[in-house]
Design a protein around this nucleic acid. Structure first.
Length: 573
RNA sequence: CGGGGUGUAGCUCAGCUUGGUAGAGCGCUUGCUUCGGGAGCAAGAGGUCGCAGGUUCGAAUCCUGUCACCCCGACCA
């Protein structure tokens, strides 16, 4: 492409409302433009990136035996009423009414539509298994769209749905999808991890997430190199400490702590480490009362784990300050296990310490030297906390590390939830009707673009992994006005590279060199060639690698081979 | 939805407290000089000050309403 013929505007200043780097750089590099909250236009170069991601996804889905379809974006309410999700899905569902006053929604996902397809098309077990996929625009009316493409309302997703006669067949396809996903992210040149995940609302037996690793990731994932354990922190099990609880050695005492409510304040005032404190969180229970949860002072509550307790109301709700005071006799911050009048469940780690500090159930006072059993009944034990770096891995292979990740893929085993609700059945070998068993597999295609930038950028702009870059190579022409020879050389190199099958961006604009360099860095194409007066006289162009900054001079006649060699070594790596 | 904030030129923002008729930088246009890391000088174009009411001789500025957007909380690819 010749840059002189494409309107391309970059921003020198960071737009005020762009919070995360990917959003800032997408806007600054002119790849996307925001139309309204959570809704974006893909500009020419941004679209090229999106298409490259789609192509890899499509190739790998096809390789894994999936078959592409394209379902409607607009879906009738009736379908959603069949599965009950018209009412349950809530405000995330963008509802539309047509001129006949009929209800529709803009699809946030396609389980209903694909199940409708399946129940019409699939009649015999002989047609199974089948895995349909599409790459399509979805709309979820997020309460708060943010972070640019990372959490847009309108976004592009690859979603696949597989249908099986039995669980064993589902397992096979699920495994194939896990492998396809790993191939996709590897081919895109992204550092990623697959983790065990909570299957959440969609339901079903097994679920795995794929995360692009990046500091700015919204999710925390726990992993261990020693045993290849990896799980979303929501799921990662905290093992009970192996050492038995020490015997009490201190006497129970009540101390005044008028200013201290938080663990940090209490620990500072009493000069004890937070891990020698026990904090109590009071949450709503299932029986209309409240339930107290005990954690070691330095640990944080894991909402997903707490919700799994039968006594705890879902969704997890902290009791209001008034409820806490009336139930325990103390305001929040001073609740403790000694003489506590509400049911108490303690995290394993909180149960494993002796002589600890805790609230005294009286405003302005804490206890020191508290011991389970001696001063309080021994509460029920449970895994309630988030794992922290250094915890033993549930896989037994060593210590856990915590990394941040951006969820870009999620695969589920759905079972027969939708096929039963919508009567998607096939005849089995015995001629009996059986509901199909389903799997579903999503990839956030547009989110991948943002995640790639979050993971790969520097102070000057984007540093695309080669396979996602809008171009293979960018060719900067310096001083074309003053040097016809330079223009001619650039043209010949452009033809040479294009002829070699490379996607080349030729910067033939009448612009100053500084502008071209700065904008090339912003755009982040991995390989840059500069054609200028200096080199052309010697028959040379200058090469620079965007990621490493390494520079090299290359003979004009050899540029095609040179770049191709770089691309193939990058692909092999 | 609850809490906080912002709407002034394409972008980043000043002006608002204390009403007097619109500003800067970047970007854009033209010319000249420049030209190896977002040039300099000069001349320009561009704004119903989010919208609607109100107060006032006079409103970007004060009041009321409204809309949009952004940030903090629970969901998700």
């Amino acid at each position: 492409m010749r840059l002189s013929q494409i309107p391309w505007n970059t921003l020198k200043e960071t737009p005020a409302d762009a919070e995360v780097v990917s959003h800032q750089l997408l806007l600054r590099a002119g790849l996307v433009r925001r139309l309204t909250a959570g809704i974006f236009t893909w500009m020419p170069f941004g679209l090229k990136v999106l298409r490259k991601v789609e192509a890899v996804v499509r190739e790998e889905m096809n390789r894994a035996g999936a078959v592409e379809v394209l379902m409607p974006a607009v879906q009738p309410a009736e379908l959603w009423q069949e599965t009950g999700r018209w009412d349950r899905y809530g405000d995330l569902l963008l509802r539309i009414r047509d001129r006949h006053e009929r209800d529709y929604c803009f699809g946030p996902t396609h389980e209903e539509v694909i199940t409708e397809v399946a129940r019409r098309e699939l009649r015999s077990y002989r047609q199974l298994p089948v895995n349909y996929y599409q790459i399509q625009t979805k709309f979820r009316d997020e309460i708060r769209p943010r972070f640019g493409l990372m959490r847009a309302r309108e976004f592009i997703m690859k979603d696949a749905y597989s249908f099986h006669l039995d669980q064993a067949s589902l397992e096979t396809t699920y495994q194939a999808m896990a492998e396809a996903y790993a191939r996709i992210f590897r081919r895109l040149g992204l550092r990623f991890r697959s983790v065990e995940a909570d299957s959440g609302e969609i339901g079903g037996a097994r679920s795995q997430e794929f995360h692009v690793l990046a500091e700015s990731g919204e999710d925390a994932i726990a992993w261990c190199d020693g045993d290849s354990y990896a799980a979303n922190i929501e799921m990662a099990a905290a093992l009970p400490p192996s050492a038995p609880r020490p015997d009490p050695s201190a006497a129970l005492a009540k101390v005044a702590t008028p200013k201290s409510r938080s663990i940090d304040e209490v620990a500072a005032e009493l000069k004890v480490a937070p891990e020698r404190c026990v904090k109590i969180l009071v949450v709503e229970g299932t029986d209309g009362g409240v339930v107290a949860l005990a954690l070691r002072g330095d640990h944080s509550l894991n909402a997903a784990k707490a919700q799994r307790l039968s006594q705890v109301k879902t969704p997890l709700t902290l009791a209001s300050p008034e409820r806490v005071t009336s139930a325990t006799g103390a305001p929040t911050g001073f609740v403790g296990p000694v003489g506590l009048r509400v049911p108490l469940i303690a995290d394993h780690s909180a149960l494993a310490i002796a002589d600890f500090v805790a609230g005294a159930n009286e405003a302005g006072f804490h206890h020191t030297g508290v011991n389970w059993g001696r001063d309080t009944p021994v509460p029920a034990a449970a895994d309630l906390r988030n794992v922290v770096a250094g915890d033993p891995s549930p896989g037994g292979g060593g210590a856990l590390a915590i990394a941040r990740g951006i969820e870009v893929g999620h695969i589920f085993q759905l079972g027969d939830k939708y096929s039963r609700a919508m009567n998607a059945v096939v005849l089995d070998e015995d001629g009996k009707e059986r509901p199909t068993i389903m799997g579903c597999y999503g990839i956030g295609v547009s989110r991948i673009v943002a995640a790639a930038i979050e993971q790969n950028h520097d102070a000057n702009g984007i540093v695309w992994p080669g396979p996602m870059s809008p171009f293979d190579v960018t060719l900067l022409v310096l001083n074309p006005k003053n040097a016809e020879a330079v223009t001619a050389a650039a043209e010949s190199i452009y033809v040479q590279l294009s002829g070699a099958g490379l996607d080349v961006l030729l910067d033939d604009r009448d612009a100053r060199p500084g502008v071209k360099f700065a904008e090339a860095d912003l755009l982040g194409v991995p390989h840059r060639l500069v054609v200028g007066d200096r080199g052309v006289r010697e028959g040379l162009v200058e090469y620079r690698n965007r990621a490493s900054g390494a520079e090299e001079k290359v003979a004009i006649d050899d540029v095609g081979k040179f770049i191709l060699a770089r691309l193939s070594t990058a692909a092999a790596a």
